[in-house]
Computed example of a mutant assay.
Amino acid sequence: MRFFPTLPHFPAVRSAVRTTPLLITSLLLLASAAPALAQAPLAAADEAVLADRRLAAGYLRTGNGDLAALALERLQKALPAPHAMRAKTAVEAIDAGDLAAATTATEALAVDLAEARRAAGVRVLADCVREFSTVYATLDTHRTRAPDLADAALRSAIAAAARASDAAVARCDGEAPAAVKADAGFRRLVDGSRGSLGRIPEAVAAGDAELLHRFLIELRAYEQLLRFRYG
């Protein structure tokens, strides 16, 4: 009589049979998530998405939660799940009357989108503008606390920070799409920033704290507007 082995005689085969449904389920979940993951870098670089995020942030700054919620709801529909949840969190905060939390979530969404672009090797003007804001932050500390211009080392540090900020904003000018680069509003902000930054070493060398402060106030306005409109 022939002997036909059954699964109990092959533990490895028996284990594989038991785990196959779980494996298939996992593969199906990965396959269903793939379109959203592939879409993420594309959505993160979509100018309509970036414009809506800036719009929501702008309305939140002025305390207009209802209009901010409309822009965030559009983002919920346009973005894949990982990023759509940020927009949803912001909308829920608005519904709860917590505009500060909504602002935090909206800014976190900007960071998430930037990270998605970076991971995909995609770069847009918003990335450069936000980098400029980061570089400029060092120089801006002297706007809120008057520096001692009698300190030679401090004068040198302020001039270096101005040069670094100028290089950063010049890079954004170079990376801007042709239509943006030619736009009068963009030109006013970039050229105005570079004009003030170029005068800072002169004010520092002269020990003119009042003139330096005036330039730093101008720069703060330019930097904020660049970030609000293009970041």
Score class of each variant (00 low, 15 high):
Arg2Glu: 07
Arg2Lys: 00
Phe3Tyr: 12
Pro5Lys: 11
Pro11Gly: 11
Ser15Pro: 11
Ser15Lys: 08
Arg18Lys: 07
Leu29Gly: 04
Ala31Asp: 04
Ala33Asp: 04
Ala33Met: 12
Ala34Gln: 06
Ala34Trp: 02
Ala36Lys: 00
Ala38Thr: 04
Ala44Ile: 10
Glu47Thr: 11
Ala48Phe: 00
Tyr59Ile: 08
Asn64Val: 10
Asn64Thr: 07
Asp66Thr: 06
Ala71Leu: 13
Glu73Cys: 07
Arg74His: 08
Leu75Glu: 11
Ala78Met: 14
Leu79Asp: 01
Leu79Asn: 09
Pro82Phe: 12
His83Arg: 15
Ala87Lys: 15
Asp95Ser: 08
Ala96Gln: 15
Ala96Arg: 15
Leu99Glu: 02
Leu99Ile: 01
Thr104Tyr: 03
Ala110Gly: 03
Asp112Gln: 13
Arg117Ile: 14
Arg123Thr: 14
Leu125Cys: 01
Ala126Glu: 05
Asp127Asn: 02
Val129Gly: 01
Ser133Arg: 15
Leu139Phe: 09
Ala146Phe: 13
Ala146Gly: 09
Asp151Arg: 06
Ala157Asn: 02
Ala157Tyr: 07
Ala162Lys: 02
Ala162Gly: 07
Arg163His: 03
Ser165Ala: 00
Ala168Asn: 04
Val169Ile: 12
Ala179Arg: 09
Val190Tyr: 09
Arg194Met: 14
Glu202Met: 05
Gly207Met: 13
Arg214Trp: 12
Glu218Asp: 10
Leu219Arg: 00
Arg220Trp: 02
Ala221Phe: 14
Ala221Gln: 03
Leu225Ile: 02
Arg227Asp: 02
Arg229Ile: 05
